[in-house]
Write a protein that binds this DNA or RNA. Sequence first.
DNA 1: CAATAGTTTAGAATTGTTTTAATGTAAATG
DNA 2: CATTTACATTAAAACAATTCTAAACTATTG
Lengths: 142, 142
Amino acid sequence: MSNTSIYTEKLRESGLRPTRQRLKICEVLFSPEKTFHFTINDLTKMIEDKMSEKISLATVYNTIHAFKKKGYLKEISINSDKSYFDTNVTEHHHFFDEDTNELIDCSNDDIDSVNIKKNITGKKIKSVEVLIKVASDNQNQN
Amino acid sequence: MSNTSIYTEKLRESGLRPTRQRLKICEVLFSPEKTFHFTINDLTKMIEDKMSEKISLATVYNTIHAFKKKGYLKEISINSDKSYFDTNVTEHHHFFDEDTNELIDCSNDDIDSVNIKKNITGKKIKSVEVLIKVASDNQNQN
DNA sequence: CAATAGTTTAGAATTGTTTTAATGTAAATG
DNA sequence: CATTTACATTAAAACAATTCTAAACTATTG
């Protein structure tokens, strides 16, 4: 089953033409059942593995940025040495495992809604997200 | 009033010798009344402005890393293009103003404590921090 | 199909960070 | 307190992630 028309639509919505390369990016990003986290490098490797064809980093970067701008991807800030992206664009929380550097989605059911009593004047709240850092019990934090 | 002995102690605790350069870093970091956020570049400029003397980036990096490791500084992940640090090492929350890219501490009194119902098996929770993104009302999110 | 507007690409440039190796300094030693 | 040793500082080089560039290419329009 091909979702080409859906992908084409997403690309158009993001202001991009549906090219062969970009459709492959879409397939890797949007065909899996489960959402996932990735870096640009991960994604490039996934594309090249699955598709047995090269794709230029520049193409990946500009497509990802367009998707992010449009809201089809979210950037997550955990680690400052690389950019991480999330195909789960709903507002949600994360566990970050300091032992493995793994980022794990936290179901909204697992956290009571966060009650904020005060805001910055003249500003509207756009999102509220919780980051829970975990590590194995016997490990010291660094 | 000089806090040299306090700084010397902090440096020693972090496994570093108290040198002229490092004491200057301490003065900039730990003498202000209020905690603040900074990048390595900010800090280097602050030092060179205040002290009218040059300091090598490498020295700043390694001192900051030692302080972070010891827990005298915290790294904050907002933006993946630079590392941001915080002299407020208590567990606390942040507002992030998307209009100005400004990061603002959120008093713990302003958020009810976050109730987490489930955890990753075998792991211990090290910290729970909330990031509230805000923007002016009439602005579209990007 | 020709013209145009946008795309891909490899490689160069840029930026933040880390490493290196030579020189300098604090602290320990005799 | 001079000497030795271990650690520091520095400028510059290396490195890694990201962005930019300019030439070749492709989709779309007229």
